[in-house]
Design a binder for these strands. Structure first.
Length: 284
DNA sequence: TAGCTATGACTAA
DNA sequence: TAGTCCTAGCTAT
């Protein structure tokens, strides 16, 4: 399930599998059929991610813009022998299928909230609407900070606002705030610049690790299951976390109960003891 | 078979 | 803020 690290990892995988190759483009489900017909037989130049948006570039400045939404997936299969029978028939609702002409790779897109053929201008417009992406090497923390410092909105909401900062989802939000002992409802404008820079730097490191491993692991070495002698986390995304989806369970660090509350339709998770509610500086 | 849930984001009011 | 859309897997009936 997709936060920014998933999309960057995917962009890399698609580039390795298809860049410079001619591909068969189809839409077994039919909902991308017209665009697929336009792209079919064309050459893939590469793929790149900006936040949670993915762009697969074809020759002649044509892009497939993909947003996976809550449960989309883009499965890339590569290093195949090239035998035709290694590419199985599509299963389920496959919106987009790419098969390299040489038969060495294929990829199936399912469940995406967006899959559309766009021009360079349209691609640029999506990027322009997005905040800086911590996973892009040229990203700067300053535009994000300019938004956060002016806002009375809670930092928990600002971190997920893709126009403030691109690529953070619910897991990284919850975990980043825990790691910095920050209450999710703390107003953006109450942060100091130094605090935000530390948050940003940590996010860059955590998400880069996510790209490397394909999972979200946020616990520090001293809090791993091995270090603490506790059972490892068992659930659908595999990583070791402090608070995400652990409501009602004891905090790994202090033992207090992990809390949850809805903010803007999404679940917050935090430890009330490790992340005390912020009070204005006058009474701090 | 129906209902619910989920790491997201859009639109209308 | 509520409603809607995208899909698959799990649980309840």
């Amino acid at each position: 399930m997709p936060e920014g690290h998933t999309l960057h990892r995917l962009a890399r995988g698609l580039t390795e599998a298809f860049a410079g190759r001619e591909v068969r483009v189809t839409s077994p489900q039919g909902r991308f059929a017209d665009s697929a017909a336009i792209l079919d037989g064309g050459r893939v130049e590469g793929a790149e991610a900006w936040g949670k948006h993915l762009f697969v570039e074809f020759a002649e400045e044509r892009f497939v813009h993909v947003h996976l939404g809550l449960y989309g997936q883009f499965a890339v299969h590569r290093d195949l022998s090239g035998a035709v029978d290694q590419v199985p028939p599509p299963v389920g609702q496959v919106r987009l299928r790419l098969v390299s002409r040489d038969g060495r790779a294929y990829a199936d897109l399912r469940g995406a909230t967006t899959c559309e053929l766009v021009t360079t201008e349209q691609r640029d417009a999506v990027v322009a609407r997005s905040g800086p992406d911590p996973l892009r090497p040229d990203a700067s923390w300053e535009p994000s900070w300019a938004r956060v410092r002016r806002s009375r909105a809670p930092i928990g909401g600002l971190l997920m606002d893709q126009t403030v900062l691109a690529g953070v989802g619910n897991v990284y939000r919850a975990e980043l705030l825990f790691r910095h002992r920050m209450h999710p409802l703390r107003p953006g404008q109450s942060l100091r610049v130094g605090q935000f820079r530390v948050l940003w730097a940590d996010l860059v490191e955590l998400m880069a690790e996510g790209v490397r491993t394909g999972r979200i692991d946020t616990v520090r070495p001293e809090h791993t299951p091995e270090a603490m002698g506790r059972p490892p986390r068992v659930d659908d995304h595999g990583g070791e976390v402090y608070v995400y989806r652990r409501a009602g369970q004891p905090c790994h660090v202090c033992g207090a109960t992990v809390r949850t509350e809805e903010l803007l339709g999404r679940n917050l998770f935090w430890c009330a003891r490790c992340q005390p509610r912020f009070r204005s500086r006058a009474v701090e």
